[in-house]
Design a protein around this nucleic acid. Sequence first.
DNA 1: GTAGGTCTCCGTTTACCTCG
DNA 2: CGAGGTAAACGGAGACCTAC
Length: 259
Amino acid sequence: MLPLMGNCIRTNLAEGGGMTEPVSIRFGDLATASFLDRPNRFIVRCRLTETGEDVQAHLADPGRLKELLLPGATLHLRFVDDPQRKTQWSAVLVLAPDHRTYVSLQAALANRLVEQALKAGIIGQLANWDTKRREYAYGSSRWDFLLKNSKGRQMLLEVKSCTLVQDGVAMFPDAVTERGRRHVQELTRLRDKSGFETAVLFVVQRGDGKIFRPAVHIDPAFAEALKVAHHSGVKVFVYDCAVDPMGITWGRELGMDFS
DNA sequence: GTAGGTCTCCGTTTACCTCG
DNA sequence: CGAGGTAAACGGAGACCTAC
């Protein structure tokens, strides 16, 4: 294992973006471990199944994840042999308490899947839009994607990674997110004033959601801001993913409930 | 000119520290 | 005691640099 580790994560999307080829990212070889605790938001301590050794793994999802990171929960880790890093492992997946649903722990995968899905033209409402820039700074925020269409219109697209599902309802956020609320409110403002189209795309990085709802009980201000945005013409889309220890694959569009 | 490598900056949430 | 600042580990984009 070497610096090539990153190559384990490569889309298998055919060059040129065939519509039939699934958009997916493979994980490569993973080890299983049992979650012990989370000393800070970047680190999880866990016990490797194979050797019983206790190790620290980098956690690339800043969310609270309290419904998932329960003591004893099964984690899947990638070994990364990089002397620059403090940890030799990265957390990739967690098995939900139902012991059937795998949930991605790499928030950044949402953006990478979206980039591939845009290229492949498989996001229905965005089929005619192409990526012009990533991390595009405009107004007082940085937006995940600046898109353009054939008519020269431009769209600011913000991607949110969602990992919370309860009773088939995918919800965002899993903790109060002032920044998320500001994002949504600014998209609403910019849509009125800037001439940009604006959109929020929630990527549910698990496969057991049937419908999406903003998490009113967790962050009522965010939920209200999203509702207002939606009614003001900010496009809101939700897609889920099929996740297993092999990889993560772009999934279906989910319906939304703003009631 | 250009391909490829390197550097810098930013984003991310929370706990804890400092200062007023 | 509360507000504000900071550090924690890493990845990614884009700017910058270098060597052909």
